[in-house]
Design a protein around this nucleic acid. Structure first.
Lengths: 222, 222
DNA sequence: ATATAATATCAAAAAATTATGAAAATTGCA
DNA sequence: TGCAATTTTCATAATTTTTTGATATTATAT
């Protein structure tokens, strides 16, 4: 997974780079939009971390140019207080954004989330006649489509990606709701309930692990 | 899990402490970097919450010194508006940081996230056909799942982690129930009983050490 | 062998956890 | 904006687990 970090401050680039290297990403650096475009042309970049405020060509312009070349996911860095209108007005194609000052861990978590999304893009998860087609974003049982709400869909996908692993409510929350969800843990229970109801004969695949959380359990030899 | 909170403001320390105690962390306090170093030397601290701005020795210096002694995860507290450069120039190895004013809930959530990473997870313990798979949070004997209650599971895991070591009821209680359990020591006996029953042919692995406690004894050469 | 101390067992009470249903809040969209 | 769908919260029911305390059993020293 190759990541391009574009920021005019070398210090920030370095810090981000250090953290990403720890996670075994391949990291490229650019100090301005023009350099970034050059790198995108020559390297097979999977994700770009782009600062908005930069001399010469700002982050928005750079993204515009890059989008013409290749469709790459972006995470934007913005200084606190930068106009949110502009931020929101732009967001076609921006996958996430992070406000400075940010915690390195937060940035890495978001990058991970996006890259994970990329890696699982279009994957299909199956168990017997239960099929989750992520590209079509639909779920079928016995070849018949099952209508799920967005959260139910995310939850099922997360379960299928992590089959046979006991997942705490906390883990589920931070992976599906985001690390910054500070609501009630019981929320998970409710969604498990509705998801189970929608899974019909497969409802028992979601096992309650008392004192722990839930587990999507499938016996491999069937 | 032992946490050291280092901040020159007693009020802030107290608030953090209150919240952490609710989560059953053991909390130590230091009002300056020097004290923090002393505590790290003498107590087995698992995580440090460190304010950056402090008199005498600031948070950065303290971290530098502590890192020489022991590699402990840090969460930094920084006042909003503290120089961005300084913040980023330093914190390789800082696991997260939180900007003041922060919500206690947020801080606790971040602490939880870091401590969770620390704890050994996903391990598998085996003895002959007795297998404890911690990731799946399940126990099997002869490839057949054995249903255990949470306490039984924790107890078995603890035994398997400490095989061939005689463990007093007191030690077992403080490790599985927590240091703040004020109940009867006989409680352990009851759980040992039910665990033995569930272990079937392996029930004799748990040996009673009269006048002392219990021991999970396995002969390595079998 | 017997007394004594420690452990094992048991079942009922207490506590904790999860499931569920419904209301309230939020979000997304026409 | 207002409607419909979704998400979240919250109270209560259902279930499971934990603890307690009484009694039985076992081990040990004399």
């Amino acid at each position: 997974m190759r990541i391009l970090v574009c920021d005019d401050e070398a210090l920030i680039r370095d810090v981000i780079k250090e953290y990403l290297l720890l996670e075994h990403y391949e990291v490229f650096e650019a100090s301005n939009g023009l350099d970034a475009i050059e790198i995108v042309k020559n390297k097979d970049i999977d994700l770009i971390v782009m600062d908005i405020m930069m001399p010469k060509m700002d982050g928005y312009q750079a993204i515009n140019e890059i989008k013409k070349i290749k469709d790459i996911p972006f995470i934007m860095l913005s200084a606190r207080g930068e106009e949110f209108d502009k931020l929101y007005g732009f967001q076609l194609g921006v996958d996430d954004y992070v406000t400075k000052p940010f915690s390195p861990k937060e940035l890495v978590a978001r990058i991970k989330a996006v890259t994970k999304r990329i890696q699982n893009e279009g994957l299909t998860f199956k168990y017997k006649t239960l099929v989750l087609d992520d590209l079509a974003h639909e779920v079928k049982i016995d070849d018949k489509q099952v209508i799920l709400t967005p959260k139910e869909y995310d939850l099922l996908k997360y379960f299928m990606q992590n089959k046979n692993i006991a997942l705490s409510r906390d883990t589920i929350l931070s992976n599906i709701w985001g690390y910054d969800f500070f609501g009630d843990e019981r929320t998970v229970d409710t969604h498990v309930k509705t998801l189970r109801n929608n899974l019909g004969k497969y409802r028992d695949l979601i096992i309650t692990v008392r004192g722990m959380g839930y587990k999507f359990e499938i016996k491999e030899n069937e």
